[in-house]
Amino acid sequence: MKNPYEVLGVSETATDDEIKTAYRNLAKKYHPDNYTDSPLADVAEEKMKEINEAYDTICDTRKNGGAGSSYQGSYGTSSSYTHTAYPEVREYIRTGRLDDAMEVLNGVAENMRTAEWYFLMGMIFSRRGWSEQAYQYFQRAYQMDPGNAEFAAAFNHMNARRTYTTPGYDTAYGGGCSTCDLCTGLMCADCLCGCLRGGGGCC
């Protein structure tokens, strides 16, 4: 396992507040919600897990003098879903088998295409990097079922990326969070609520 201080980008003599700030910045930057429709969603998830583990290890070490990590993976992921008509398509997308996912969806008759069908088509194009087509599918899914949180999140996320203005790069040298500026403030606030350890100080 990597040195947890190295993972958070802080020195071993850093104060609790410095560690907490570094953790917050990284959690904001790598939160899976930022990468939901990205081809690198799984990589970001791994990175987030590494950051959480490093933070937990440091906290435990400082509290208990080196007891094991109690990482529970408490940050929220947007990929959790309970009801789906296309479990195998979702699995194909998750594992990067985009052609297989596309084949299944293309086999669905036009009059049977639900909002989820359009959403999943959007995911396939998005993972492939074809954002213009992805946008049209996400928009259609959202229009067909505006009450679905998953479809709304995908559409809003795509909209946020398409409308982002110059990120505040000058404040983000080394360890900043400029990529986060791509996302809406709402999303950052949302992901912070989900991922930061509840309450109290770091250690």
Partner: peptide, 29 residues
């Protein structure tokens, strides 16, 4: 905007290197 934001998100997953500030200047400014 979308292509640039995806470029930045991908770059963010790489380890920061000695020319990070210049690369960020190019991509963000």
């Amino acid at each position: 905007n979308h292509a640039l934001s995806e470029t930045l998100l991908s770059y963010g997953l790489l380890e920061k290197g000695r020319y990070d500030s210049i690369i960020m200047n190019i991509l963000c400014a």
